[in-house]
């Protein structure tokens, strides 16, 4: 088991390195850098001016070297000019002595995430703050989505073809067919607009960042949860119907176990193995939903800064965001693997 986790972690780190390198490569392509130079300098820069700006800010080096520096495994670049020393790990232009005192490595491994050009602030603090907002949102999404999806799935799957099954399956198909930007729009239209006039909820969740209430926070949570819920519920249902037709359920039934106990004691655990993995693998998609919903409801969280960073060519911030999201996704995958092994005695004890 220990070895298994170790191997998985190894693969996970390799994946993270590959992914961050891809993001790094894409964000550091020349047109992006050129745009960066022009936004930082001025828009009428000549090509030579752009090149010299890039060189003097360390962007002229090969991508692999830059990646190493960003990661913190290669020493940060330094440049000696007439005014003094400057470099990746040095703020502004300083004298040679001061430069010698500065850290040699300053990448994300050292906790240096860089500086956001969009927010004019330290990347780490921005990401940290926004992540908190989103974490809060996600927590409630999961609290709503997972139990209701499992209950729907189990109820539907326990008697295949019954009325409960058909009605609940219809509901879950409907929710999987409704992406967040559709359900969000419909919810806003129905529950918040003056045209319909129900006005039960608030159309934006901006105020929820400081003071989340049911009124301003429920719709975004519901919007994300609904889309994922149908999918998980259908998985659970499929798994549950399969288990309910298994021979060992018949054995239990013919042992005289009551239906209630068959479902709870015999079927449930076996039926939950598959959906568990699904829930964990939902995270990359949930992130999608987060971005849409945060945009739609104007909730300034992680998804919102993603859009801002990407829209404003904020390279350092974008890199940090991808590191965080890749990390979240990979960790959930790891948990899903471990949980699968734990839930399934056939694999655990072999």
């Amino acid at each position: 088991m220990g070895l298994f986790i170790l191997r998985r972690t190894g693969v996970m780190i390799l994946t993270a390195l590959c992914l961050t390198f891809i993001v790094f490569f894409l964000t550091n392509l020349y047109p992006n850098l050129e745009k960066l130079a022009k936004t930082q300098g001025n828009f009428r820069m000549t090509d030579e001016a752009v090149t010299s700006w890039l060189n003097s800010n360390g962007y002229g080096q090969p991508t692999a070297v830059k990646y190493g520096q960003w990661l913190g495994v290669l020493p940060g670049w330094t440049l000696t000019t007439d005014d003094g020393e400057t470099g990746r790990c040095i703020t502004g232009v300083v004298s040679a002595d001061e430069a010698a005192d500065a850290a040699r490595f300053c990448g994300i491994l050292q906790g240096e995430w860089g500086f956001s050009t969009r927010f004019k602030d330290d990347v780490a603090s921005i990401v940290w703050e926004r992540l908190g907002n989103t974490g809060y949102l996600m927590f409630w999404v999961l609290m709503l989505m997972v139990p209701s999806a499992l209950i729907i799935g189990v109820l539907a799957g326990m008697r295949e073809g019954s009325v409960t099954d058909r009605s609940l399956s219809t509901v879950s198909i409907l929710t999987t067919a409704t992406p967040e930007y559709v359900s969000g729009v419909i919810f806003i239209a129905v529950f918040t607009s003056s045209t319909v006039g129900l006005k039960w909820f608030k159309g934006t969740a901006t105020s929820a960042m400081d003071n989340p209430t049911f009124e301003n926070f429920f719709l975004p949570v519901l919007t994300i949860a609904l889309y994922g819920m149908g999918y998980i519920a259908r998985m659970t249902r499929a798994s549950m119907t399969e288990v309910m037709t298994a021979q060992y359920i018949r054995t239990a039934r013919l042992k005289g176990v009551s239906f209630h106990n068959i479902v709870l004691k015999h079927a449930l655990r076996n039926a939950l193995i598959a959906p568990f993995t699904v829930i964990m693998l939902q995270f990359p998609w949930l992130l999608n939903g987060v971005v849409i919903v945060e945009t739609l409801f104007n909730y300034k969280g992680f998804g919102w800064i993603l859009v801002e960073a990407a829209g404003n060519n904020d390279i350092e911030l974008l890199l940090a965001i991808s590191v965080v999201s890749v990390f979240v996704v990979l960790v959930t995958q790891l948990i899903s693997d471990i949980g699968y092994v734990y839930l399934n005695p056939r694999i655990r004890i072999s």
Binding site: R250, A252, L254, G256, H266, R269, L343, P345
Partner: peptide, 20 residues
């Protein structure tokens, strides 16, 4: 069922609950 009439099946592996 199971008390007065009991049944034994063809596939022993399938008729035992794998997670119990």
């Amino acid at each position: 069922r199971g008390n007065e009439i009991a049944m034994i099946y063809q596939e022993p592996m399938a008729s035992l609950n794998p997670a119990m």
